[in-house]
């Protein structure tokens, strides 16, 4: 069952008055509302959730790429309702990377408590504190997000590429990643494919 996010937020604010934590409502039918935490406050918030509120199980860590305002504008967000606009705020000035944590509590049988953390941008300020010291299950999942999205988790014990090889330089799960063009093309009436096929086999062009 979904946890009572309002109560958790109140307790968090009571215990950590300096931490920047906002409630982000989920507009969909799933009603899994989330807490947006500032990167610097993440370790403190997580420690509190783990020790005091007994969220002892981190199930899932998701990385998300929100490239630029153009793409975010496509998101059907009501202009007048800013708080419910998550995910994909149309009002964000520039793109960012987001990491989402899904927490559960074994003893209380509640969850998921959804935490969101955002980087400053997509190139330089991509650092987020690692939570491996609190939940070990984040170890490989954070490495995966580092590999595929390029989020740098500070304090991670072994931050290396995990799925791609070490010499690889791109972050393939980002929305603007262009995969190597190594297809063979079959005859097709599809104009776009034919256009790419022309670049593939320039020598065979007749005209």
């Amino acid at each position: 069952m979904n946890p009572d996010v309002d109560t958790i937020l109140t307790r968090l604010r009571g215990a950590l008055p300096d931490a920047t934590v906002e409630l982000r409502a989920n507009p969909g039918p799933a009603e899994q509302h989330s807490l947006l935490v500032a990167p610097a406050d993440l370790p403190g918030v997580c420690r509190f959730l783990h020790d005091e509120l007994r969220f002892d199980y981190l199930s899932n860590v998701t990385g998300i790429d929100w490239p630029d305002p153009v793409l975010a504008d496509k998101v059907a967000v009501p202009e007048d309702d800013e708080d419910s606009g998550d995910p994909g705020k149309a009002t964000e000035p520039q793109g960012f990377l987001e990491v989402v944590y899904h927490l559960y509590s074994h003893p209380d049988r509640v969850g998921p408590l959804v935490l969101r953390v955002r980087t400053g941008d997509r190139t330089d300020r991509v650092e987020i504190p690692s939570v491996v010291s609190i939940w070990r299950s984040a170890e490989f999942q954070e490495r995966e997000i580092y590999d595929l999205f390029g989020v740098r988790f500070t304090g991670h014990p072994d931050l290396r590429r995990i799925l791609m090889w070490d010499e690889f330089v791109d972050h393939p799960m980002r929305k603007d990643y262009v995969a190597p063009d190594d297809f063979e093309y079959e005859p097709t009436p599809h104009a776009e494919v034919l256009e790419r096929a022309r670049t593939h086999y320039p020598a065979t062009e007749k005209d």
Binding site: E186, Y201, T204, K206, D207
Partner: peptide, 19 residues
């Protein structure tokens, strides 16, 4: 390399249509 051209040289089947 992306392929071993000595053993892999597919016949480009798109030329007529592409032209």
């Amino acid at each position: 390399p992306a392929a071993n051209r000595e053993i892999w040289n597919p016949d480009p089947v798109v030329h007529e249509e592409a032209a």
